[in-house]
Structure formats: structure tokens, C-alpha cells
């Protein structure tokens, strides 16, 4: 009975939303803010990827808030899982193929992650995606050899320093220009690696922070005690 009511409710909600969506314009968004940003973003920030300039320049404070939310989530998960880090019986090692494959993939994943971070202002990608790839890169060898553990002190240092670097760049812009996280250091030539001023530095800080947080989270999840069914 309860299931039937829920299904009816969900179907009704879907129908209602569909009726609302039928009034939305498709293919011709009333993009006033977007149009303005598209016109002046390359001249203002010097980044070829306009999404990057929205994320880091027009909405940089928002990104700082997102970083703190992610930090709170990772810290909360680590706190919840914390007391059970010691395991009585660790998982067995993976087979030869998994260990050799993980060792082969590790440098490739590292290079791909750094490429995505450093080219965040030119091609799709950036700090968040590159951080995820870095976390996956550091987790893959751990999947083959579960007995080894990541160095939690180093991870916390990297995370703290990267967060401090993000805020320091923002404060520098605040004192030099009067706006928090305003673009600095000149714009350079559109489409080259060393362009867009401080945006690549900010994305590098974001990438290191996200990567450190997520790999610490993955290591915490992997190190909690396995439970037999």
C-alpha cells in the first residue's frame, strides 16, 4: 500500500514537472549573464576554457566554499570510520597480473592527472577532475597490495598546504587589486600553456587538495575492518 502511494506520488511529481518543463525554452536559453560572460571572459581572464574562468574567476569564492564542503565530507567520513583502522586480518594480495598491471598503470595515471590539471584553462578538465584521477592513481597500487598503507601525515600536509596556497593567492589579489581572487599576473597569449595569469596556479592548488582528500578518504574506507557475511 505504501509502495503504491509512493509510486503514485512519484508519477504525479514527474507529470507535474513535465508540464512545467514544457514551458521552458529548449535550445534558446534566455542567457543574459551567460552571454555577457561569453563576450568578455577571454579578454578579462585570458583562459580559453570559459567554464574554467567561471569556476575560478567569476565564482572563485564559491569554489572555496565547495572545497570546504568537500573537506568537511572527507573529514567527517574519516572521523566516522576512525576508530576501526586496525584490522585483524588484512585482505590477501592481488594476483600477479593485478600487481604488475597496477605498477604499470600508476605512472600513466599520474601523467594523465597532471595533464588534466595543468591544461585546465585550455581543454576540458581542471583541478577537480585531475584530483579525482590522482586519487585513483594512488589507490590503484593499494588495490593490489592491501597491506601497504598510504602515509597519512604526508597527505594531511599536502592538503593543508594546497588549501593555504589557494587562500594565499586570493588574499594577494585582495591586497594588490582590491578584489578577492581577482586574476593576477597578466593574461598572456590566449591558448598557450603559460597564460591566464593565476588561474592555472589556483587549479593546481585545487587539484592537489582534492586528490589528497579523496585518496585519504579511499585509504580510510579500504582500511576499515572487513566483515564476513
Amino acid at each position: 500500500m505504501r509502495n503504491l502511494t509512493t509510486l503514485l506520488f512519484a508519477a504525479g511529481l514527474g507529470f507535474l514537472l513535465l508540464v512545467l518543463a514544457a514551458g521552458l525554452p529548449y535550445g534558446h536559453p534566455p542567457m543574459l549573464v551567460g552571454q555577457g560572460i561569453l563576450q568578455q571572459a577571454p579578454a578579462t581572464t585570458g583562459a580559453a576554457n570559459i567554464v574554467t574562468s567561471v569556476v575560478l574567476a567569476y565564482r572563485g569564492l564559491d569554489t572555496l566554499g565547495e572545497l570546504s564542503i568537500l573537506f568537511a565530507a572527507a573529514a567527517g567520513a574519516g572521523l566516522v570510520l576512525g576508530g576501526h583502522r586496525r584490522r585483524r586480518r588484512p585482505d590477501p594480495d592481488g594476483g600477479f597480473i593485478l600487481i604488475a598491471g597496477a605498477d604499470l598503470m600508476f605512472p600513466l595515471l599520474l601523467v594523465v592527472g597532471l595533464y588534466v590539471i595543468l591544461h585546465g584553462h585550455l581543454t576540458p578538465g581542471g583541478g577537480f577532475q585531475g584530483g579525482v584521477i590522482l586519487a585513483a592513481a594512488f589507490f590503484l597500487p593499494l588495490l593490489g597490495r592491501p597491506r601497504e598503507a598510504l602515509d597519512h601525515t604526508a597527505i594531511s600536509w599536502i592538503e593543508g598546504l594546497a588549501g593555504a596556497a589557494f587562500i594565499a593567492i586570493g588574499l594577494w589579489a585582495l591586497f594588490a587589486r582590491g578584489d578577492f581572487l581577482a586574476p593576477m599576473l597578466g593574461k598572456g597569449v590566449l591558448g598557450q600553456l603559460f597564460s591566464a595569469g593565476t588561474l592555472p596556479l589556483l587549479y593546481a592548488a585545487v587539484g592537489l587538495k582534492v586528490g589528497a582528500e579523496l585518496s585519504g578518504l579511499l585509504a580510510d574506507l579500504a582500511a576499515t575492518e572487513a566483515r564476513d557475511p
Binding site: L98, L109, V112, T123
Partner: peptide
Amino acid sequence: LDVALIYGVLSFVGMVA
């Protein structure tokens, strides 16, 4: 092409896990 590259690399990690 970047999307395809990242997808191909990371789906391997997810499936191995």
C-alpha cells in the same frame, strides 16, 4: 577526445575495484 581518454583510463580502475 579528452573525455574518451579519461573515461577509458578510469573505467579500468573502477572495474578492477
